[in-house]
């Protein structure tokens, strides 16, 4: 068992003839994913790593009965690729491509939903159900079949967490990277719901980062609906406020979106938060063996944010002038938002 993808997944690769597309199509196939076809307009009839290529999604779906697609096309074409997949009847679309305009995504999101489809990403590493199927770019060498579900807003940080779990002998049911953009197709709550339902998943690892309120919302959901143990991790605990740290979503400004608030929200609902990815398996083991309360208590003692709050250590100091400059520059979206909604 697993979430979202499994042995029945029949995958189409959009942009299969490109550098990333061909490389990862081959990797996915090698992992055992049922890659049934690829699509690149103008390259129909050719083959990539033995996988037939079609000119359009419509043709590819008609010929192969694929149910899932993964997108590697360049950003300029990626929005169109999502629409094309949904219109061809694909019910699960995973967009690896990064750099999609957020305003376009605001239109894509309801379109996908209204067609009864699910989008994961964009700007995400995809997902993997060890031993069953891999869709995206996660390195297969780090996963292991087991009973932990992993969901993350980050890409490479997810690998770090998975690797830590695998090293500690804790395998995974499914690992999902949902992406860190402003507008994403699948959020923490969707994945928590899927993991809660999936009977083979016994514990959940949730990896968040600064910016937005997704982690807080997830905490509320966990309190209400999640019975399985959850371990958290929040990246950006030491990030200076008001900076955009790469992801469009990873912006903190004002009093919202800070790591400290997210950690507090998670702790409050019984989710311990690891300080290093390496600590995740240990916390999970403790939770699985029972004593939730003492895990949280110990975790709080160690929490860096606690120490920041107590003044024992300070968040990273940035160069004075640049702090103001780039703070304002980088935090464009968030500052502007908090101008109004700041509490």
């Amino acid at each position: 068992m697993s979430a979202f993808i499994n042995k029945k997944t029949k995958l189409l690769v959009q942009g299969i003839t490109g550098r990333g597309g061909s490389f990862h199509a081959e990797q996915m196939k090698a992992y055992g994913t049922n890659v049934v076809a690829g699509v690149t307009p103008g390259k129909g009839g050719s083959k990539v790593a033995g996988i037939p290529v079609f000119n359009s999604m419509e043709d590819a779906v008609a010929k192969t009965k694929a149910n899932t697609s993964v997108i590697y096309v360049p950003p300029v074409f990626a929005i169109d690729a999502i629409y094309e997949a949904v219109d061809a009847g694909i019910k699960l679309v995973i967009c690896i491509t990064e750099g999609l305009p957020a305003n376009d995504m605001m239109k894509v999101y309801p379109y996908v939903k209204n067609h009864g489809a699910r989008l994961i990403g964009p700007n995400c590493p995809g997902l993997i159900s060890p031993g069953e199927s891999k869709v995206g770019i996660m390195p297969a060498s780090i996963v292991k079949k087991g009973n932990i579900g992993v969901v993350s807003r980050s890409g490479t940080l997810t690998y770090e967490a998975i690797w830590a779990l695998t090293e500690a002998g804790m395998g995974q049911t499914t690992c999902v990277g949902i992406g860190g953009d402003q507008v994403i197709g699948t959020n923490f709550i969707d994945c928590l719901e899927a993991f809660e339902k999936d009977r083979s998943t016994k514990g959940i690892v949730m990896i968040g980062e600064i910016g937005g309120t997704d982690e807080e919302d997830a905490a509320k959901y966990i309190k209400k609906y999640v019975t399985k143990p959850v371990v958290g991790f929040i990246a950006g605990q030491a990030a200076p406020p008001g900076k955009r740290m790469g992801h469009a979503g990873a912006i903190i400004s004002g009093g919202s979106g800070l790591a400290i608030d997210k950690i507090a929200a998670l702790n409050k609902v019984g989710v311990p938060v690891a300080l290093s990815p390496i600590e995740i398996p240990g916390l999970m083991k403790e939770l699985l063996s029972g004593d939730k309360k003492s895990v949280i208590k110990n975790n709080l003692k160690k929490s860096i944010s606690k120490r920041v709050a107590a003044g024992k250590t300070s968040p990273v100091k940035s160069k004075k002038t640049t702090a103001v400059r780039s703070g304002l520059k980088k935090a464009a979206k968030a500052t502007s938002k908090t101008r109004i909604v700041k509490k």
Partner: peptide, 20 residues
């Protein structure tokens, strides 16, 4: 590589007594 990992790396630099 990756914003999340970059932030987590900074967090750890800070945690082990360095300054990114």
């Amino acid at each position: 590589n990756g914003a999340g990992l970059a932030m987590a790396t900074m967090d750890l630099v800070k945690r082990y007594g360095g300054e990114p």
